[in-house]
Design a binder for these strands. Structure first.
Lengths: 348, 348
DNA sequence: TGACACATTTGGAACGTTCCAAATATTTAA
DNA sequence: TTAAATATTTGGAACGTTCCAAATGTGTCA
């Protein structure tokens, strides 16, 4: 029950030096004599000193808090959990800590959370913006010299850095793969049309169709919520078309799972009767039956890249907006019909 | 590019009052006149004032930082991601923010992370301790008056509060369910024997056997790594016994999945040929084939309870160690053989 | 009117650190 | 031996807030 906090002054007294010297030791300055340094360190250990970053921070105006804020929209989704882990890895090894918050796609909550983080003096922010986030929302942060990196979803118009996966190329390769398997009528299912990610993926779909020499038909693009339920809905609409598709690329894996559900509810087997390709490669994709063919985006990598970019800007002291797109690759499993379902895995 | 920070003094000047008054407004004190309050608030908005919690914190020695630390061992595991979300929910609505870090079961990293959080002046800590965490590890925190709540895994001997699921009751109900289905030889598979959680679950197993009037056989308890691979290993050992079991309760769902793999590798179908019950109810349990019968533990609930407990202690100003066990319930699906595999779910 | 209660406001002195300019010790060069 | 150069140490004065004790203003009652 040690009541009083041990401060730099206590250390100074006990070590017979001035507080300034102790401070120098704390910062690992080369000015201080080797002997005094070890003595001070010894005393610190002995008295159980803990550094008060808040106080230090107060003096060193601004960007030295070594706290970075991380805001994601859905930590329950393993995609974002992985992303957070990626951020944590680089942030932690750079001696920073992360404030992590979850917005559940609520723009109000996002605002609150960011405000709170700002009060705590974060040195930078990584955010996967909630849907319908206004590009101007992060203006004050940037104006205050706090670097912001937007990940996963970009925010057109906002002058901030971003790390997004190559949605266009990913979707294009998915479409071309299906075309190679002989499919001619390929649908694009799921996703909300008012998002930048949707636009990119749709653009990739169109490029893919074109590259494969297939016609683009408006009716084959069916948007819906980017969720499992949304996927069920979308495939329902697709299957009542006069000229039905035989394959679909989906906005994301959740949609793809919904599509599979919907197919089975209509006695169609995903993979053999209808080809399905997802996007994201969430962990469940591998274990699902049939295993989902999907575009792998490595959320952890995005987290790492984002954190690196942010740290770079923090260290540089100025935030020059920069855009990084991370590579994606098509992972061919069973749901596209390319592989037979051989589910017996090795014993151990 | 506003360079200088707006401070309470700037506000005071602009509003024609003293900094003390502004401070009172900030704290929502009832002492201040309604007129001045609104004026001050207006000025704050106008000048874009942002509260400096660090400075405030410096003055109000100690526990008012409104930061709580959360450390988990594996955020990639959806169990812990859910837990973090639960914590975040209550912490956020209480106006706190959370430092979240991931230890990946590394005890060194855990130490680093906790030290760093302490430097930042957290008001409390929620931790799911890495394996082999020493009970004394959190002693300094507690001594400094920082409440600590241990979740998921308890730390016998440490005088801190904890929130754990009712491992005993859960395992007991699993065993009794299998007994009701007519099983006599029920194995307990997986888990490391040196953990408190293992002991609890094993105790539940024994109670369940006893309650069902079945004998306890040492040889039917087979420990292994608490992972999918470990499960495969354990079932392998179980199936070479002279008197083979016909059913198994598993240390957790990962083990249960491994057991299913192992069964199939030996041409046995989980559910019909051998009953398997898991523990945790991770999201994959539902979608697996066969769907896993398991004990559902609601990690989000644990997170919420833990956070509530912690906040209570922070507000009370003193940390009286308290132990909460959260209820669990058996979710009967297919892997125990109680239900036929009817996999066609409703369309939407 | 003076004395009192009450409501509101207010200067400083903290809090624990870092930074600066200047002081003091030590070494080197002449 | 002394001056100059170098290495080390050091008191304040910040940083932006909250707290305290005391000051001011306003109204009420004899």
């Amino acid at each position: 029950m040690t009541k009083a906090r041990v401060t730099v002054i206590d250390i100074a007294k006990a070590a017979g030096v001035s507080k300034s010297t102790v401070s120098l030791v704390l910062q690992g300055s080369s000015l201080v004599n080797e002997g005094t340094r070890t003595k001070v360190n010894a005393v610190m250990r002995e008295l159980g000193y803990v550094y008060n970053r808040g106080a230090a921070n107060l003096r060193q105006a601004g960007a030295k808090s070594r706290i970075i804020g991380v805001v994601v929209n859905d930590l329950t989704n393993s995609f974002f959990a992985e992303l957070a882990v990626g951020v944590d890895m680089v942030v932690q090894s750079a001696g920073f800590v992360q404030f992590l918050s979850n917005t559940s796609e609520s723009i109000d909550r996002q605002r609150e959370v960011v405000a709170s983080m700002r009060e705590h003096g974060i040195s930078g922010l990584i955010v996967s913006p909630a849907r319908a986030t206004d590009a101007a929302d992060f203006k004050p942060l940037v104006a205050a010299g706090i670097p912001v990196v937007v990940v996963v979803r970009n925010l057109p118009g906002a002058k901030v850095s971003s790390v997004v996966s190559d949605n266009r190329a990913g979707m294009m390769s998915a479409v071309m793969h299906l075309a190679e398997l002989g499919h001619k009528r390929i649908a694009f299912l799921g996703g909300f049309p008012d998002t930048a990610v949707f636009d990119d993926r749709l653009a990739g779909y169109r490029s893919g169709m074109e590259a494969a020499g297939l016609d683009y038909h408006q009716e084959l693009v069916i948007s819906s919520a980017p969720s499992r339920a949304g996927g069920g809905e979308a495939i329902g609409k697709a299957l009542v078309l006069a000229d039905k598709p035989t394959a679909a690329v989906c906005f994301n894996d959740a949609v793809a799972f919904g599509v599979c559900d919907g197919l089975r509810a209509r006695r169609l087997e995903p993979g053999s009767d209808f080809a399905v390709v997802g996007f994201d490669d969430v962990i469940e994709a591998q274990a699902a039956v049939p295993a989902l063919t999907t575009v792998s985006v490595d959320p952890q990598g995005i987290g790492r890249r984002g954190a690196q970019l942010l740290l770079k800007q923090i260290n540089a002291g100025k935030a020059e907006a920069e855009t990084v797109t991370t590579a994606v690759r098509l992972v061919v499993r069973e749901s596209c019909g390319a592989r037979k379902s051989v589910k017996i895995e090795t014993g151990l």
